[in-house]
């Protein structure tokens, strides 16, 4: 199940250069490239002649040349040259997709191009905000995109999957989690008041006493999760919104379905302490990366089990509340999108 009329992250900005990059989104093969003036293009990754992926070809000037018989296509998807003949068949063109570069990511719109409004792109300004240091990364994951969303909306797995990195049992045994559900948003919030700061926080925040910690997960469909985590000295008013004297990090996640069983996972870690210090950015990133790879091992193993027996029943527990609400939102949006598409088809 895919939601089509949404902007998705297609690539890191510096992955797309003057040579073709082939990637599949929502089951459709796409080739991305830049022309000499730096402008971005996304075409269907399939030569209309004999279906070889165009991403196997190369750029000749501003045209993408197919590796098989040398047909060339410009950024509008139009074939502009057929070797050995003057006539270019009218059907020698490929579909194009709207693309936008924002927040050091390349965004693509896989649905109806008439609905591709860049103002609808999810906010990830922390990646380019000078007040924050940030580092983005990409992981190819052999798991359905919703398994990744489930994972990020659940705080309790930290105690088990990340036992040796960022979790402990206190996160599970004495948790009070608040799940706020709006029509198209889920916010999972947890405060840990007046507790010692974990060692990593002490190091960067230079705390001398207890702190108030927050973990706030903001989910926006289809698969954007922005985690706000940090700590401030206890009694300085962080729960009421005053975070002065504290430290904050943003863990930023954008998951783009490749197929029903594979996903493109774009993530980044941002921090508001020493934002201009690239060593600090690297250190924070590396700490979180270890935990990320632990998660990847989990949801790829889940996918293998699900593929072996797709109809196996699942049991829900309290900790699933956030993930279940996210799935309900996606189910509703999918039904709405399908109904709109059916209506449009009937009207034609």
């Amino acid at each position: 199940m895919f939601l089509r009329n949404y902007w998705y992250v297609a690539a890191l900005a510096d992955e797309v250069r003057d040579r073709p990059l082939g990637r599949t989104f929502l089951g459709e093969p796409v080739v991305l490239f830049r022309t000499a003036d730096g402008s971005l293009h996304a075409l269907e990754d399939r030569c209309p002649h004999r279906q070889l992926p165009l991403s196997m070809g190369k750029m000749i000037g501003d045209a993408l040349q197919c590796h098989y018989h040398g047909l060339r296509f410009d950024g509008s998807g139009q074939c502009v040259r057929v070797p050995g003949q003057d006539h270019i068949p009218a059907k020698a063109r490929v579909r194009t997709y709207p693309v936008v570069e924002r927040y050091r990511w390349i965004w693509i719109f896989m649905g109806d191009p008439a609905l591709a409004d860049p103002s609808q792109i999810c906010d990830f300004h922390w990646l380019t905000d000078p007040e924050w240091g940030a580092k983005p990364a990409y992981l190819h994951v052999e798991a359905n995109w919703q398994l990744v969303v489930d994972n990020l909306l659940d705080l309790t797995h930290l105690a088990f999957v990340h036992e040796t990195t960022i979790g402990n049992m206190a996160l599970v045994e004495h948790a009070a989690v608040k799940v706020q559900r709006a029509p198209n948003n889920v916010l999972v919030t947890r405060w840990i008041i007046d507790q010692p700061a974990p060692p990593t926080f002490v190091k960067v925040g230079k705390f001398t006493g207890n702190v108030d910690r927050w973990q706030i997960i903001d989910y926006t469909p289809p698969a954007f999760l922005r985690l706000d985590v940090g700590a401030s000295p206890t009694g300085t008013g962080a729960p009421e919104g005053r975070r002065a004297g504290g430290i904050g990090m943003r863990n930023l996640n954008a998951i783009t379905p490749e197929t029903e069983t594979k996903s493109h996972y774009f993530w980044a870690q941002a921090h508001n302490f020493e934002p201009d210090n690239p060593d600090m950015t690297d250190r924070v990133f590396e700490q979180i990366k270890t935990a990320f790879l632990e998660d990847v091992a989990v949801f790829t193993a889940q996918q293998r089990a699900i593929t072996l027996r797709p109809d196996a029943p699942q049991v829900d527990i309290n900790a699933d509340a956030g993930g279940m609400q996210a799935r309900r939102i996606v189910d509703r949006l999918y039904r709405e999108e399908q109904a709109t598409a059916a209506h449009a088809t009937a009207a034609e």
Partner: peptide, 8 residues
């Protein structure tokens, strides 16, 4: 362990 659910 408890989860508080709030709907808007």
């Amino acid at each position: 362990f408890r989860v508080e659910l709030v709907w808007t």
